[in-house]
């Protein structure tokens, strides 16, 4: 009996050690394969700086778009019950699991020059292929659904009785949303935005198909890695290390804000709703 228990314990610890090592090794190798000084030297390489600027610009724009349009959509889907609601939610979730290459093709045939809206767009003087606007659309299409999905859950976690209480206290829908719903869903929305940001920064497949990989225009950090990795591994390593640090920072700040929120505003009871009895 005792030896069997020991065996099970050993197996669990050994499996955990192998799994952890498997996950950590590539990350550690990225940071240690070259001496830090050579990584620092490559930071000034124009391929790196151009890609960094393109990535930051397009991610910021896509993120603004996602939050501005995604938040109202998530709130409506979380708070309204209507026929076809679950179908709409499924449509929103679809791009999350879609292969990025499929997303890229979809974007081309929808918004590209010869696509569904291409004619309308060019009539308006808008051109969304192989430029920054195309990168922004690709990132928003792939990262937006992640934001909306997590934001729906954040809004659904707000006790509907608090919303009802706000209304009976004389607050209209707008005041209720900004004073009650938004603060209570805040930590969840922050998490949603952080996940979308991380996903958007790493976007590769849809971007390379829809926007191409033009240095200083559409070449984001992941595209730059792909572009240089067989000619200049140092640059690829530098960008990758940069990535590890950036995404780790996003995750860490996410953990810290949710920790700060939960210590500050724990709802006493979120389970019970305004029950009709």
């Amino acid at each position: 009996m005792a030896s069997r228990r020991l065996l099970v314990a050993v197996f669990f610890f050994a499996a955990s050690a192998v799994a952890l090592a498997f996950l950590i090794l590539p990350l550690a190798a990225l940071l240690t394969d070259r001496p830090p000084s050579s990584l620092f030297d490559q930071l000034s390489n124009p391929v790196v700086t151009d890609a960094l600027v393109v990535s930051l610009e397009t991610s910021a724009a896509a993120q603004a778009l996602i939050i501005l349009l995604g938040t109202p959509l998530a709130y409506l889907l979380a708070s309204r019950r209507f026929r076809g609601r679950s179908a709409v939610v499924t449509l929103v979730e679809l791009p999350i699991v879609l292969p990025p290459a499929v997303a890229g093709i979809g974007l081309i045939v929808a918004f590209g020059r010869l696509g569904l809206l291409g004619g309308a767009f060019s009539a308006l003087g808008i051109d969304v292929s192989f430029n920054k606007a195309a990168v922004i659309l690709a990132v928003a299409f792939v990262a937006g659904p992640l934001y909306v999905r997590v934001a729906i859950a954040a809004f659904e976690a707000v006790d509907p009785r608090l919303v009802a209480a706000s209304r009976t206290l004389g607050a209209g829908p707008a005041r209720t949303f900004f004073r009650v719903v938004l603060p209570l869903a805040g930590s969840g929305l922050t998490a949603a935005a952080a996940l979308a940001l991380a996903r958007g920064l790493g976007e590769f497949g849809a971007t390379i198909m829809f926007a191409g990989s033009l240095q200083g225009v559409t070449q984001t950090l992941p595209l730059a890695i792909y572009y240089v990795f067989d000619t200049n591994l140092d640059v690829a390593l530098t960008i990758s290390a940069l990535f590890v640090i950036m995404t780790a920072a996003v995750l860490m700040s996410l953990k810290l804000t949710s920790l700060w929120h939960s210590s500050r505003s724990a709802s006493p009871s979120r389970s019970a709703i305004f029950a009709s009895s």
């Binding site: 009976t168 206290l169 004389g170 607050a171 209209g172 209570l184 709802s267 006493p268 305004f274």
Partner: peptide
């Protein structure tokens, strides 16, 4: 009339105080 335009004071079950 919507709830915010009815002059009603409602004390909810378990009170529904705003936790934040």
């Amino acid at each position: 009339l919507p709830p915010d335009r009815r002059r009603v004071g409602l004390v909810f079950q378990e009170y529904a105080l705003f936790p934040h």
